[in-house]
Design a binder for these strands. Structure first.
Length: 488
RNA sequence: GGCCCCAUGGUCAAGCGGUCUAAGACACCGCCCUUUCACGGCGGUAACCCGGGUUCGAAUCCCGGUGGGGUCACCA
């Protein structure tokens, strides 16, 4: 069987959007599932804005997501180069062929003339399409226009008869009447190819077997199919995946919160969670599995199972998934990943030494089941790293305003001091004994102690906090709280 | 506006003519667990856009309407 070859072809403008990320993912999954080749191609024909950073951003996002490309920039694939800006000669060659065969013609209409034509057509109630007037230009007329310094565009001759059918793997046969398409431009007056043309030439020359892309390209597809035929190339199979919409059903944009892969990384999400979430957005394994390892996703994946309707992007489930992953990972990994977030908050200075790392690991283990992201993990761990925190206002009202709290905490401090081995059973035993001896409820000692040690009213179990913090810190903070209470 | 796609709970979705008085997950609401907050467990609220057909039988097929989205550039 012919080897499957798919491509992800973003234009490097800005960062990788989650929509693009999902398209890349579906392509990658399809390749991995079928032993195919996943190709990365940069559609950077656009003149001005072509920042190197944008390209690097795409690379790093794909890399972070774990979507390695088999062929693309930086590889020695045989179908290169993989930047359209480095393939202009190839487009020229194909355009010349088309010109020779008479499939395309030169058009000298200027942008302002075209605008005028469109306007007139609209006035008369016609569709604003090019009328093909330059098709009939004689050689003399052409030369005359050249002499006036007009450089032509190349337009393809479209038939007005019949229909063109797109056989879409997700949607089935989609028919387009040819008369709805006009003689569109394939080469601009500056000699550069337009999107539809470059895309077809590249997909042909790169021997792409399956074009998997966003639904917004479905309307372009009949034009591209006609181009394949004019060029004499076989058309690939198509699969147009549904769009991802914002919660208000509009097109996704920056104002809808985090929408780029990079933002999710910065917000403390794991690539596994984002990939898992994205896979489930528009695709389902057919059963009720939700949290899936990447290999599981690969083996269950198929284009036919991709849904036809647009999905609304809602990060709640992503956040839940992230929490699931956070709790399932090795403590080592979590500690390693949370370090940058701790550094950013000044909780950890520089690269942690072995002892600090072990502490971070311990803290993270104790805290992680109540947070969703690395950002939340870092924030919720603050008091493990800094001594200078305020007591939660409501907590003070609730637990510090009682009669005799200072004495109680002082006794707690003394009890802590007496603990020989500061581990979980001993700490708990010591505190339980104190509670029994005083004949009070557990909460009346536990809650003020938590507030004294962390400044918060919620968090990990008190004894976990104590053991993690260590005996010295506990005594210190208990004492500090006693002083604070007495000063009021 | 023309053309194209789509339509199951708030969201993601299973369902591909009878087993649907419609799974599962997120979110939400209760209860349990518990020193708190979570986690976890148990339970609950909540959907086949509307109207016509086809059929013994329709969420599932067909047509129309409505709604949403996409596309109509010398942008990709």
């Amino acid at each position: 069987m012919e080897q499957i070859r798919v491509r992800f072809a973003p234009s490097p403008t800005g960062n990788l959007h989650i929509g693009g990320a999902r398209t890349a993912l579906f392509n990658w999954l399809f390749a991995r599932k079928n032993g195919g080749v996943f190709i990365l191609r940069l559609e950077d024909t656009d003149l001005e804005r072509n920042l190197e950073e944008a390209e690097a951003g795409i690379f790093s996002c794909l890399d972070w997501l774990g979507l390695k490309w088999d062929e693309g920039p930086g590889t020695t694939g045989l179908s290169g180069p993989y930047r359209q800006s480095e393939r202009f000669g190839l487009y020229r060659e194909q355009a010349d062929r088309l010109l020779e065969s008479g499939a395309v013609y030169k058009c000298y209409c200027t942008p302002s003339e075209l605008a005028q034509q469109r306007e007139q057509a609209q006035k008369k109630g016609f569709a604003p399409r090019y009328d093909g007037r330059c098709r009939r230009l004689s050689l003399k007329e052409q030369l005359e226009r050249e002499a006036r310094g007009i450089s032509p565009v190349l337009r393809i001759k479209m038939s007005q008869e019949g229909t063109t059918v797109v056989h879409d793997l997700i949607r089935g046969a989609v028919e387009f009447e040819n008369k709805t398409m006009d003689d569109f431009i394939i080469v601009k007056s500056n000699g550069l190819p337009t999107y539809n043309f470059a895309c077809v030439v590249d997909d042909s020359l790169m021997r792409i077997t399956h074009v998997i892309r966003a639904e917004e390209h479905l309307s372009n597809t009949p034009k591209q199919i006609l181009l394949y035929r004019a060029l004499g190339f076989n058309e690939p199979a198509f699969a147009h995946v549904p769009m991802i919409l914002a919660p208000d059903r509009s097109k996704l944009s920056k104002r809808h919160g985090a929408t780029s892969v990079d933002e999710f990384r910065l917000d403390g999400y794991f690539p596994e969670a984002l990939v898992n979430y994205l896979a489930l957005l528009g695709w389902s394994p057919g059963d009720d599995r939700e949290m899936m390892a990447i290999n599981e996703i690969i083996s269950s994946f198929s284009l036919e199972a991709i849904s036809k309707s647009a999905a609304i992007y809602d990060t709640k489930k992503l956040t839940w998934l992230n929490a699931q992953y956070l709790c399932s990972f090795e403590p080592e990994r979590v500690a390693w990943e949370v370090v940058p977030f701790l550094q950013a908050r000044g909780f950890v200075k520089g690269n942690p030494d072995e002892k600090t790392f072990a502490y971070i690991k311990k803290v993270s283990e104790v805290v992680r089941s109540r947070v969703h992201t690395l950002v939340e993990l870092a924030d919720a761990s603050s008091y493990f790293y800094i001594d200078d925190f305020d007591y939660d206002e409501k907590g003070v009202k609730k637990f510090f305003n009682r009669e005799g709290v200072a004495e109680l905490l002082d006794q707690g401090k003394e009890a802590v001091k007496m603990i020989p081995y500061f581990d979980l059973p001993n700490v708990e035993l010591a505190y339980r004994n104190l509670i029994d001896n005083l004949g009070i409820s557990g909460g009346s000692l536990i809650h003020p102690t938590r507030l004294a040690l962390s400044g918060k009213t919620m968090g990990p179990g008190l004894f976990d906090i104590m053991v993690t913090l260590g005996k010295e810190k506990c005594v210190e903070r208990l004492e500090k709280a006693v002083c604070w209470l007495k000063k009021r």
